[in-house]
């Protein structure tokens, strides 16, 4: 612990000395920053010791330890535009460096049917029978049926109330 205190104090002194010797401006700002340094060091000390005892961040590193083989990789990299005079050194909203951070739109699906069957179905030619069916003329039987008079023996459905029998509102 004593070593830690000395090293942090040494670091503060060393950085101050470096800045003073550089002769650059912003000395006043640096002085203000030095006022905040003890609180940062205190917070860092507390967090480090707490983590060492409680190990709250310990977890199964499944993404690194589970065997996985990547196959059939396809890439598309399409130039969009050139961007200039950006202030940040990294892309805005970068998330490729944290695989746990989900993208805005994420979908996980479990296949409903065998993959090969789906691929085979997509690959097959459109059915000729379907085309033929669409191309054929309307059936004669349908026209005949429409021409027939209504069957007298068709019972009238009694469970449907008639419109005029509805009680008026």
């Amino acid at each position: 612990m004593g070593m830690g205190i000395l090293s942090s104090a040494d670091a503060v002194a060393a950085s101050a000395a470096v800045l003073a010797s550089s002769g650059e401006g912003g000395t006043a700002l640096f002085g203000l920053i030095l006022f905040a340094v003890p609180f940062v060091v205190g917070w860092f000390t507390y967090a480090t010791l707490y983590k060492r005892y409680r190990n709250q961040n310990a977890r199964y590193q499944f993404e690194h330890t589970t065997a996985a083989e990547r196959l059939k990789l396809q890439r598309w990299d399409t130039f969009v535009r050139e961007k200039t005079r950006m202030r940040n050194s990294t892309i805005d909203g970068r998330n490729d460096d944290d695989p746990h951070e989900r993208a805005h739109h994420a979908i996980v699906r479990e296949a409903m049917e065998p993959r090969n069957a789906q691929a085979a179905r997509e690959a097959q030619e459109p059915r000729i029978a379907q085309e033929a069916r669409l191309a054929q003329e309307a059936r004669e039987a349908q026209a005949t049926r429409q021409a027939e008079p209504e069957r007298a023996e068709q019972p009238e459905r009694s469970d449907q109330p008639r419109g005029e029998e509805h009680p008026s509102a």
Binding site: L73, W76, D77, V80, E82, R85, M86, R87, N88, I91
Partner: peptide, 11 residues
């Protein structure tokens, strides 16, 4: 400041 080329990326 930084200049960069932007790409649409698909994998």
């Amino acid at each position: 400041y930084y200049d960069a080329n932007q790409f649409e990326v698909v994998r």
